[in-house]
Design a protein around this nucleic acid. Structure first.
Lengths: 193, 193, 193, 193
DNA sequence: GAGTAACCGAGACGGTACGTCAAGTCTTCCA
DNA sequence: TGGAAGACTTGACGTACCGTCTCGGTTACTC
C-alpha cells in the first residue's frame, strides 16, 4: 500500500517552511507564556502566517503542539533489553523521566486532552499509548523469562509506572530524577515477585 | 479560639441562599455541558444572580466548583483501622475508588489546576493533599506494626496509589472498580514486604 | 405662615453635617476628576456616608451638584440699576461672565440636563431661568426709560446674551472676559436702538 | 495626485454593508430611546454585527452618531449670495434653523462633547466649525461690500448666531422657526450698522 | 503559455465570554 | 427613623480570541 505519491494533489503544494515556522512558533509561545496563554492568533503572529493556514492543517492548537512535540522528541522510543527486568526497568524509567524537562508542554497537552475529548483520543493514540506499548514489551520479555509471578496484571503495572510519572509531572510535588527512577524500579520488581 | 461570632461584620451579610444557588448551579452546568462549557455567565444565569456576586467571593470558576465539590463530598475522609495493612488498604482504596462517579468534576478541576497555578495551589491544599494525609496515616500505622520493610518510601507508595487513581481517572482507559482496588492493594502489600 | 415647623417628621432628623459633607464631597470629586468621572459611589466614599443617604435626599447625582452649586454661588443675583441700559448691561455681563471659573461644574450640569429631562426641568427652574429673570428686569427698566425700539423682542435679546455665554462656555473657543462683556453689551445696545 | 486607489490595503476589505447598517442602527436606536439609552451593545444587536466591528472603526458611540449625522445631512453647506447682508443672513438662518428636526441627535452629540474632550474636538472640527466657516463667508462678503461698521467683531457675531441657535436647541424653551430667523437676522443687521 | 486549483498573508467579520464598573435597591446593626 | 456599611441584581463597558470569510497574490500542475 503506501501510495504516498499516488494522491498527488492539484494546485500549490503545502509550504514546508510555513509548517515548520508554525510548529516552532507554537513551542516558543508555549515556553514564553505557558499553555494557558497559547492562542492561535499568537502562533500565527509569531510564525508570520495567517490563521487560516493553521486551521487548514490542524483541528486545534493542541494538535499543533502535539505535532511539534512528536517532531522534536526522539522519534523512536528505545526499548532496553539488558536481560533482567530490574535493569530493563531502570533503563526505561531513567530515559522516560528525562522527559520532565518538557513538563510545561506535557502538562498543557494533558490539560487540553481533559477538556477536549477529540484531542484526547489523538493524544492517547499518538503519544501516551505508544509509550505504554514500549513498556509492555519490557514486561512481556520479563514474563517470558519467568521473572513475573503467575497472573501478574501487566496493565496495572504499566499504570503504576505511568501513574507515578504523570502524577508527579502534573502536581510537581516530588522529583522525577534518577533516584526516583531507581526506587520505582525496585518497587515494581518487588511487587512482581 | 472561639470568638467566631465576635468578628461580626458591618453591612448586609452575605446571602447564604445565593451562595448555595451558585454552588448548585455550577454543578448542574458542569453535568449538563462538561467542564469546558462551564462559564461564569452561565453559572450566574442559572443561579439567578449577578456575575459580580460570583467574582466577589471566588477568584475563578474552578474555585466555585472546588467549593461545591468539597461541600457535597463527605466532609471527613474515613481512615480505616482494621489491624493490618492489607485490610486497611483495601478499605481505603475501595472507598476512594467510589469517587469515580465524580470523574467529570475531578477531571475539570485537574484541567484548571494544570492551566492556572494559583488554583493549583488551592486544589492541592484543600483537596489532593488532604487525601494523601489520610493515606499517610494508614501507612504509618502499618510501619508502627512492623508491616513495612525498613526504609520504605512512604511518599512513593502514596504516589503509586494516587498516581494509578488519577491516571485511570484522567485517561479513562481502565476500570476503577472493586477488583482494581483489590489488585492495587495486593500490589502495594507485596511491594512493601 | 411658613409652617416650617408644622411638618415636623418622626424619627431621627436629617443630619445637617452629613448633608454638607455630601455637597462638599461632590464638588471635590467634580474638581478632581471632571463631571464624567463623578459617581455616587465616589461621593459617598469621600463624604464618609452610605449611598442610600444620598439616594434618600436627591434623585440624581446632578441634583447633588446643582444644590452644591446653588449653595456656594451668591444666593442673590444682583440686578444693577445704573440709570442706562448700557451701564446696566455692562455691569450685569461683567458679573455674569465671572462665573466662567465654574465652567466644569456648569458644563457638567448642562450635560446632565441634556441627557435627563427630569433634571433638565430642575436645572432650568432653579438656575437658568432665575438668571434670565434678572436680565429681564434690566431690559424692562430700559424699555420703561424708552431706550428700546418699539416692539423689541426681549426674549430674543435674553437668548442672545445667554446664548453667547453658554456657547462660549460649552465650546471654550473664545474668551468670556471683560472685553468680551463690553463688546457684547455694545452689540446689544446697538441692536436695540 | 490621484492614486486614491493606489493605497489598496491587504486583507479582507471593510464591509460597506456593515458600515451602513451600523450607522442606520445608531440613528434608529437614537430615535427610539433617546441618546441616553444609546449603547454600543444595542447598536450592534440592531445592526446584526459584532461589537468589535464598531470598536474597530469608531472610538465611541458619539463618533458613530456624528458620522451618521454627517452622512445623512446635506454634505455641502449652502452659502447664500443674494447681494445684501440682510438677505444672505435670512437665507442662511432659515436654512440652518431647519436642522431643528435633528434636535435629539444634536443635543446628544453636544452632551457627549461636554463629557468627553476627545470627542469634543472631533465634533467641533467636523461639524460646528464647518458651519461657522460658512457664516464667516457671508459676513466677510458683507464687510467687503461695506455693510459692516468699522471694527465689527465677526467672531462675536458668529457666536451670537450660533449661541442663540444652540441655546434654544438645548433648552427648547423658544421656537427656532422662520419668524425667529427673521428677527435674529434683523437684530444682527441692526447691530452691525 | 494560458488556465486551473490550491496554497499563502492579511485582516475584517459575527460571535461568546471575559472581568470591571457603576447604578440603584435591600438588609443588617447601631444611634 | 436616620445613617454607615456593604451585599445584592442588573446591565453596559471595552477586550480577547474564536473560527470563518474574503481579498490580492503565488506556485505548482494540466492542457
Amino acid at each position: 500500500m503506501g501510495g504516498m505519491t499516488g494522491e498527488r494533489r492539484l494546485g500549490r503544494p503545502r509550504s514546508e517552511g510555513t509548517r515548520t515556522a508554525i510548529l516552532t512558533a507554537a513551542l516558543e509561545e508555549l515556553e514564553s507564556g505557558g499553555y494557558a496563554a497559547l492562542t492561535i492568533d499568537g502562533i500565527a503572529r509569531r510564525a508570520g502566517c495567517g490563521k487560516q493556514t493553521i486551521y487548514r492543517w490542524w483541528p486545534s492548537k493542541a494538535d499543533v503542539v502535539l505535532e511539534a512535540l512528536l517532531e522534536r522528541a526522539e522519534t523512536t522510543i528505545e526499548i532496553p533489553d539488558e536481560g533482567s527486568l530490574s535493569d530493563d526497568l531502570l533503563a526505561f524509567l531513567t530515559a522516560t523521566f528525562r522527559q520532565r524537562g518538557q513538563r510545561p508542554t506535557l502538562v498543557g497537552l494533558m490539560a487540553q486532552a481533559l477538556l477536549d475529548p477529540v484531542f484526547a483520543t489523538a493524544f492517547k493514540e499518538k503519544f501516551l499509548f505508544r509509550r505504554r506499548a514500549a513498556l509492555r514489551v519490557v514486561l512481556e520479555r520479563a514474563a517470558a523469562r519467568g521473572e513475573l509471578a503467575e497472573g501478574a496484571d501487566l496493565e496495572l503495572l504499566m499504570d503504576v509506572v505511568y501513574g507515578v510519572l504523570w502524577y508527579r509531572l502534573l502536581l510537581d510535588h516530588a522529583p522525577l530524577d534518577e533516584p526516583a527512577a531507581e526506587r520505582l524500579a525496585a518497587l515494581i520488581v518487588r511487587a512482581t515477585r
